[in-house]
């Protein structure tokens, strides 16, 4: 590469700023809405003139919101954990073992990932009502796991194929038992992939709206995205714009943190499973 000239650098900075604007303008708009006070809320300005934390106070005093936040965190964490455990087992078998029906499993996973979720809403609604899972944590966790599994299986098996499995042989020669080889050599190499996949799965669960909306009816299991759509103001005439914006920012914070800290891994994870032209 030739040394970059100042002009070229400036040009690229210009382009980069456009990308930053693209990514952050809608997010900061919500942030500024959440910080506006009641008088300036409807002034149509992009930036708040008198920032206040009132909206945040309001939502954290709202039991329904707090409850939905707990639901969101709990349901997504449990779904991620289970999906990763089951997905790791499946992906290991697909990447490493020979057994019949491998292609069928991959095809099924692909089918599930392309599945129109709306087609499941009715039957799941009926079934869950019948067996008492409607409006409960497991009632959401089970479909979340199902739709997270294809993602987990594809991403993990792509990662597992990258592991230099020859090291298992080396470890055997170095005097390791099969368990030691797995524990001390393979596990440390597999962990980054598993962790990356966990982030992707968590983001996918966190994002769900349709199931949360259709398979819950009270704050018992309703997650934040669904709860936001049910927000009402303190009085019927007050528009809940501020609190909705505040709630939106609250559930965006963990996502932005993930992205900031694990950018490289998320990129690697998203691209690993997909493109093997």
């Amino acid at each position: 590469m030739q040394p970059a000239t100042t002009n070229r650098k400036l040009m690229w900075w210009g382009i980069n700023i456009l990308v930053l604007l693209y990514a952050f303008v809608p997010v900061f708009w919500l942030l500024s809405l959440s910080l506006k006070n009641a008088e300036t809320l409807n002034d149509g300005n992009y930036f708040p003139t008198h920032p206040t934390g009132a909206s945040y106070q309001a939502i954290f005093q709202n039991d329904d919101f707090v409850r939905s936040l707990i639901n969101s965190i709990g349901i997504c964490l449990i779904s991620t954990l289970v999906a990763i455990v089951i997905g790791t087992m499946c992906a290991y078998a697909i990447a490493r073992l020979q057994f019949p029906g491998k292609a069928a499993i991959l095809a099924m996973a692909l089918l599930v990932s392309m599945f129109p979720q709306i087609a499941l809403v009715t039957p799941l609604f009926k079934i869950e009502t019948a067996i008492g899972l409607f409006d409960t944590w497991p009632g959401l966790i089970i479909p979340y796991i199902t739709f997270a599994l294809p993602l987990a299986i594809y991403t993990l098996s792509a990662f597992f194929r990258e592991i230099p499995w020859d090291l298992e042989k080396a470890a055997k020669m170095d005097g390791a038992t099969p368990y030691q080889a797995f524990r001390q050599v393979i596990t440390p190499l597999a962990m980054p992939g598993v962790f990356t996949t966990a982030i992707l799965v968590f983001i996918a669960c966190w994002n769900d709206f349709l199931f949360a909306l259709s398979l819950t009816s009270t704050s018992n299991a309703r997650t934040v995205p669904a709860a936001m759509s049910y927000f009402t103001g303190a009085t019927t005439f007050e528009k809940p714009t501020g609190p909705i914006a505040a709630a939106a920012i609250v559930i965006t914070i963990p996502i932005v943190l993930f992205v900031l800290v694990f950018q490289r891994r998320i990129v690697a994870g998203l691209t690993s499973g997909a493109v093997k032209g």
Binding site: P164, D166, A170, K172, M173, D174, G175, T177
Partner: peptide, 20 residues
Amino acid sequence: KAPKDRDIAMVFQSYALYPH
């Protein structure tokens, strides 16, 4: 006997160094 019980060491073509 398993490799670990033979007390012999091996150098691999790929070196097989543990990256972590």
